[in-house]
């Protein structure tokens, strides 16, 4: 692989297209990119497959950082539906709110949302991690198979419906639990896991505050729907 330029390249979506942007990001010539004037464009920085750092100044539409791998994407604004969907690794950081299906089916990596995340956050999660500093909407973690979701605020209705082996940590209220999702004992390994996730999300102060960490409840699968004859 050729050495990338250690400078920041600006990419103005008022002047250039998303297609041109993604084409550049898929064969990067620099290590840092700044995207200007996204103005709600879709598929911004989708399909990144390199150790690059992309900062987006403004709001993005659907599927920003879709299927993201290895690099870091920061959204200095709001993100539309499906941000970081099917992420494999790396980090996606939304400094505003995220719409529905944030990090849907993510297999790895970390999504941090500084604000709230709407419905179906972490739906069908397959190993990725999500830290939402605000609240999450209804039907979040639906059929979540693996990975962890940390919610520092409240969770909406039907949290973790038909959940498999994903682990959920919620600090605030849960409107209701979905089928087969139950509150579980917070053992030491879970506490350590939660502390690390908070640190990964840049919440060192909270991670070092025992009272803050102790105020979370863990949720997961009761495993009563794992076999047809016993559950339906």
């Amino acid at each position: 692989m050729e050495t990338l330029t250690e400078t920041t390249v600006d990419f103005d979506l008022a002047e250039q297209t998303v297609r041109e942007l993604n084409h550049e990001l898929h064969a990067p010539t620099a290590t840092h990119y700044r995207v200007l004037n996204p103005r709600g464009a879709h598929s911004v920085a989708a399909g990144i497959n390199d150790e690059i750092d992309v900062e987006i100044d403004g709001d993005v539409g659907y599927f920003c950082a879709g299927m993201h791998k290895t690099g870091k994407v920061t959204v200095n604004g709001m993100a539309g539906p499906g941000v970081a969907e099917n992420m494999m690794s790396g980090v996606v950081h939304v400094k505003g709110h995220a719409s529905q299906s944030a990090a849907a089916t993510a297999h790895g990596g970390l999504l941090v949302v500084d604000g709230n995340a709407s419905t179906r956050c972490g739906i069908s999660l397959k190993g990725g991690d999500i830290v939402v500093k605000g609240n999450i909407g209804a039907m979040s973690a639906f059929m979540a198979q693996a990975g962890r979701i940390v919610v520092c605020g409240d969770a909406g209705e039907a949290l973790g419906d038909s959940i498999f082996e994903a682990r959920l940590y919620v600090r605030g209220k849960v409107a209701s639990l979905g089928a087969d999702c139950i509150a579980k004992e917070m053992r030491e390994e879970h506490r350590e896991e939660l502390v690390q996730l908070l640190k990964d999300a840049g919440m060192d102060q909270e991670a070092n505050d025992d009272a803050y960490v102790d105020s979370f409840t863990r949720y997961g699968s009761a495993r009563t729907l794992y076999h047809f004859n016993s559950g339906e």
Binding site: S43, Y62, F63, G66, P81, G82, S101, T105, S124
Partner: peptide, 23 residues
């Protein structure tokens, strides 16, 4: 599908797949 519902979303999903695979 976990991240799209309805025909308008499908348009955007197809666009995303094209973007990821460079058309």
């Amino acid at each position: 599908h976990p991240d799209w519902t309805g025909p308008d979303d499908l348009t955007l999903k197809i666009e995303e797949l094209r973007e990821i695979t460079d058309w």
